[in-house]
């Protein structure tokens, strides 16, 4: 499997930053960055990461099953993550999540039919003092209201 030249460069750097013989340490960051390009952690990605980090595919697989940001199936092009944890809950996070679900017509970890959007109710993202918070892919949005979310979604739809 080959990745973009930028990612290959990153992987080369990743494999050399841990003490000698400890390439297993690169597994999680490598999976995260690989997923950005492949859209999901497929069996092929697992095999490839295992080969590069000199571990067994099973050792990679068990990691994929543990971390919530690693997905075995592709999420939407825009992965909308709405926090409903306590700080967000107090200022309308749950209502915001329900609104997002209604607007996009999908539920937790579901993807729209056109593959453009996916939704996830997430745990605390570290935006408590600027709640309610939404992260779309890796972009944070603070003090989000239902109207602001609609606007964001409209903007993303148009951007295609």
């Amino acid at each position: 499997m080959t990745f973009s030249p930028e990612l290959e460069k990153r992987f080369t750097a990743l494999l050399t930053r841990y003490p000698e013989g400890r390439t297993r340490s690169a597994v999680i960051p490598m999976l995260m960055y690989a997923q950005d390009e492949t859209g999901a952690i497929t069996g092929e990605v697992i095999e490839e990461v295992a080969r590069r980090c000199k571990v067994t595919p099973l050792q990679v697989d068990e990691v994929v099953g543990y971390y919530s940001m690693l997905h075995r199936k592709p999420m939407g092009k825009f992965h909308v993550q709405v926090c409903t944890n306590i700080s967000c809950l107090l200022v309308g996070g749950e209502e915001l999540y329900n609104h997002a679900s209604k607007t996009l017509g999908i539920g937790h970890k579901q993807v729209t039919a056109d593959g453009q959007f996916s939704l996830e109710e997430v745990e605390c993202m570290g935006a408590c003092s600027w709640a309610p918070a939404v992260e779309i892919n890796y972009d944070f949005h603070h003090h989000v209201t239902p109207e602001k979310l609609d606007e964001l979604i409209r903007g993303l739809r148009k951007s295609q």
Partner: peptide
């Protein structure tokens, strides 16, 4: 070093396991 979504990895020894490429 990037984590991948796990509150447990804020606990110092779970973080170390995660840093070693394992489940936290």
């Amino acid at each position: 070093h990037s984590g991948a979504g796990a509150y447990e990895c804020g606990e110092e020894t779970a973080l170390l396991d995660s840093l070693e490429g394992k489940r936290g």
